[in-house]
Design a protein around this nucleic acid. Structure first.
Lengths: 334, 334
DNA sequence: CTGAAAGCGCTTACAG
DNA sequence: CTGAAAGCGCTTACAG
């Protein structure tokens, strides 16, 4: 089963190679009838363009790069949702996603050129400004995900600031005055945005009181941070942060014989699987990660087609309230 | 910043294009000194091969397809680990992974040809025999993951049969006689393998007693299935199955006022995040999904390089014993 | 061991 | 609107 080429199509249709090429690319430098005829023939003969050739000849490859930072640990469950959403939209538009593993040593721009990507999705927090500048200098279109908003760039974000505000408000309305925020590393925009929202809401609802601890995203870290905080004389009566951290906090709380939500309330972020199966079920902010991927891919593809597009996109989360923060909180006077 | 080409290298070094090409490709049809000289020059000039050109001329793209079945729900957490492992090994060997979204309507072989994949990784249970036959007819190398072993094909599997046997043995040794298995859909090889192991172990340790329920993989389903079983006069005293199913079973058990592990023991499969944070922490079989991806990618790349490789690979799981199955079980006589 | 020649499949100026 | 020509950067027979 020999591969069908443009040349074959040309011979059979009786038109020249350029004409066939134009028909295939839906050019408007060709009459509608001829275009249709050739397209039908291509379909009938099961023609598939050779991406390498097309790319060499100076065109598009139909391949979008998806940067993945090389991590020791497994991909965050969240990333695979982004990937899923992006892949779906890309597939609809005739694009495919190429996974590009990167690490500190890799100049991603080089990688990009080398792999003939039409455009790039950058969901990794670790990509440095320098690398992004490189992509810009190479004129490779890219879209940033969950990164510092920037008027000059395309960036699609979850509205983390509002996420933190909503959670803080929710907890303060339940009667909590001392709400602790367990944060991931501050050098990620996500966490800076959450922090900002938490600060704002604290000003508004708690008179500025704040209690923040930084760590990574592990259950162990959550356990450690919460344990420390619970030792304080006037320890927080509510914690929020990423789900895994909060799962750790739950363990610390139970270990001390405190009850959730009666003594301490808990709210997670991400609504990962099983967070609702903990005892008690943990309230959590559900984030539209698949939507994030869809929006980003859609935006990038718009750019690739030369269309105008909104530069900044902001997606809202949705607070799922469960046992861990349901109850009206009443400070016990001891 | 003009790209350096083989031609540039040829002009500067004074050698011909083919000679440069040979040096770059580490051919042995070239003297060692010349090779070295050219390689140094290439490095100095920061030469990067144009993959498109190389692919056009040499028929290879360096791209491996990774099939993903289009699902409504998010990717199983497990899949992203496979992906992670495969991507890592591929990157090491100079390959990249292209995500190929497939659904019932897509002829995957066509997709493959269309994207000029050097080879394909097939981790989806849904890919039909017909489609695989198509790939074979096209001479596209592929590796199957977690599929029915087949002497004639390359397949890398977790040893699910042993997984189920080990769990059953573990529970029976703890004193359980009525062990229920909550299974996913039987048309997946994974589940047939688990079933087989469960049956074997039941013969061996329980005198053939068996209790099986089929469902999907959701928490709700686990809750439903376990609830039904718990209504039986002599209900099972132990359940095992995929983590989410078991999380649901836990809920059903608690709802009836039964205690884990005193009244009912629980063992999950996959050891997903947070399964150890349930109350009580759930024993689970940890499966080397990243390793699965690594092995599969490594195997495929071997094939692509024309090397011989073992056709069947079997990877063991590791049982992580936690509270939910730790205790010696004693049937209470009521 | 080295080089001249051809070609991979496609697109894009350039004429008409 | 259509076609003849050139070329993208590389590799691979084919000679020597």
């Amino acid at each position: 089963m020999k591969k069908v080429t443009v040349n074959d199509l040309a011979k059979i249709s009786g038109y020249s190679q350029p004409t066939v090429s134009r028909a295939l690319n839906d050019s408007n430098l060709i009459s509608v009838e001829v275009k249709q005829k050739i397209q039908e023939l291509a379909k009938k003969m099961n023609y598939r363009p050779n991406i390498a050739a097309r790319s060499l000849a100076g065109q598009k490859t139909g391949i979008i790069g998806f940067y993945i930072f090389q991590m020791e640990h497994a991909m965050h469950p969240t990333l695979s949702q982004v990937l899923q959403g992006a892949t779906r939209v890309a597939a609809e538009e005739g694009y495919n996603l190429l996974l590009v593993l990167t690490d500190e040593d890799t100049n991603k721009g080089e990688v990009a050129a080398r792999n003939y990507l039409d455009g790039i999705l950058i969901p990794t927090q670790e990509t440095t400004e320098e690398e992004i500048k490189f992509l810009e200098s190479q004129n490779i279109p890219f879209v940033l995900l969950n990164r510092e908003p920037d008027e000059k760039r395309y960036v699609v974000n979850i509205d983390y600031e509002k996420v933190a505000m909503d959670i803080t408000e929710h907890l303060s309305q339940a009667g909590h005055r001392r709400i602790a925020y367990l944060s991931g590393p501050e050098d990620f925009w996500i966490n800076r945005a959450l922090l900002k929202g938490y600060r704002k809401a604290s000003e508004q609802f708690l008179g500025g009181l704040q209690c923040i601890r930084f760590g990574d995203w592990s259950e162990e870290e959550g356990y450690k941070l919460a344990s420390e905080l619970l030792e304080l004389p006037n320890h927080p009566t509510a914690f929020f942060g990423e789900d895994f951290l909060i799962a750790g906090a739950l363990r610390a709380i139970k270990e001390r014989g405190l009850r959730v939500p009666k003594d301490v309330a808990l709210v997670g972020i991400n609504d990962v699987p099983l967070i609702s199966s903990l005892d008690p079920p943990i309230s959590s902010m559900r984030l539209p990660m698949d939507k994030l991927g869809e929006e980003a891919a859609g935006l990038l593809i718009k750019l690739l087609s030369g269309k105008k597009a909104k530069k900044q996109v902001l997606l809202p989360g949705e607070l799922i309230i469960r046992e861990s923060s349901k109850q009206e909180f009443q400070e016990e006077v001891s």
